[in-house]
Computed example of a mutant assay.
Amino acid sequence: MIEQKQLQLANIELWKQWKEQGWVPAKQSLIESYLPLVDYVSGRLAIGLPKSVSKEDLSSYGVMGLIDAVEKFDYERGLQFETYASWRIRGAIIDGLRQGDWVPRSIRDKAKKVEDAYQKLEQQYLRSVTDAEMSAYLQISEQEFVQMLQDISITTICSFDDPIREEESETRLSLIIDEKAKNPDFKVNEFYLKETLAKAIDKLTEKERTVVSLFYFEELSLGEIAEVMSLSPSRISQLHSKAILRLKGALGRFKTQLFQDT
């Protein structure tokens, strides 16, 4: 934390030179100083990806995200650039991977089928459904369901640039706007979105909530989480996949309800 503060203070002058004077060398210096962020984010995303995905490609996509972050960041708002840039880097890597079509269509179809099943069953039962109930609905054995989760684990990396539903163009990022803007409709939608996500997270199993918390808030890798929870990395990957698919299903229901109410 102290090192981050020191870096931020040291770069203030560079931000001023770049944003206020348009001095390109200052921009280049900022990019170079924050390059370790690209290695950190790409390293975390590399976990669980096929070996065919090149680390060099991940870093290349990430650098583009970092450049975009430096160009768009408003240093005068007092926000932490590291947090903002991490999301931009992450989104750029995911976009790059998707453009390269690194996940077979059959795997994406499986992920969509499981997400839809979670959405329908949990809306029907108003609770977190079990693997047995999911297996029965999908007409497969529980072992086949576990294997399906393992197969689709590499698709559960989320980006705010993803559409809320595949067939629609509206993205999660479109729900995030400048907090200073006074838009009543957005405030109402934002309230219900947060409420929906809170309820969805509450419905996750204890282990799923722990995985989500450690991965997205404590920023541990799946391998580190496996050590903390004394479970195998493949089991942690399955728990992560189930949690993300449940949450995506909840967002899908949220979008459907908004559309029906308008």
Rank of each mutant, 00 (worst) to 15 (best):
V188L: 12
D185T: 10
L220F: 10
I152D: 07
E206D: 14
F160G: 06
K113C: 11
K207P: 00
E115T: 12
S169K: 12
E219T: 06
D116E: 15
F215Q: 07
E142T: 15
A200V: 03
V211C: 03
R165S: 10
Y216W: 04
E179T: 02
V146Q: 13
E224I: 00
T196C: 15
Q143T: 10
S135T: 01
R108S: 11
L220V: 00
K113I: 10
D131I: 06
D101I: 01
I176H: 04
E218S: 12
F215G: 00
L222K: 10
G96Q: 08
L214P: 02
R172S: 07
V146E: 11
Q147C: 07
E122Q: 14
W102T: 13
L220A: 04
N189S: 11
K113L: 15
S135R: 02
I154M: 15
W102L: 13
E179S: 10
V212C: 03
I177K: 11
P104Q: 08
V103R: 05
V212T: 07
A181C: 06
V188Y: 12
Q150A: 14
A136I: 01
F186Q: 09
L220T: 00
K194T: 04
F186A: 08
G223C: 00
E168M: 05
I152R: 02
S174C: 11
K180A: 15
D151K: 08
E195V: 03
G100L: 10
D162A: 05
D161I: 02
E166F: 12
T156V: 15
E170R: 13
Y125L: 12
V211Y: 02
F191Q: 15
R165C: 03
E115P: 04
L126S: 15
R165Y: 03
I157T: 14
A111M: 13
L126G: 01
G223E: 02
Y192V: 00
L214T: 03
L121A: 09
S213C: 00
L126A: 14
L214A: 12
Y118N: 07
S141L: 02
E115N: 10
Y125I: 00
L175E: 04
G223P: 00
Y118T: 07
I93P: 02
G223M: 00
K110D: 09
K180W: 06
D178G: 09
F145T: 01
A117M: 08
L204A: 06
Q99K: 11
L214V: 01
K194P: 00
Q124H: 08
S221H: 03
M148E: 09
K180L: 13
A117Y: 02
V146I: 12
D116W: 13
V103N: 04
P184R: 03
Q139R: 15
E224R: 08
I107A: 09
V129Y: 01
S174A: 15
V211A: 08
N189C: 06
S135P: 02
D131E: 09
E144S: 14
T156Y: 04
P163H: 11
Q124A: 03
R209Y: 01
S169P: 00
A181K: 13
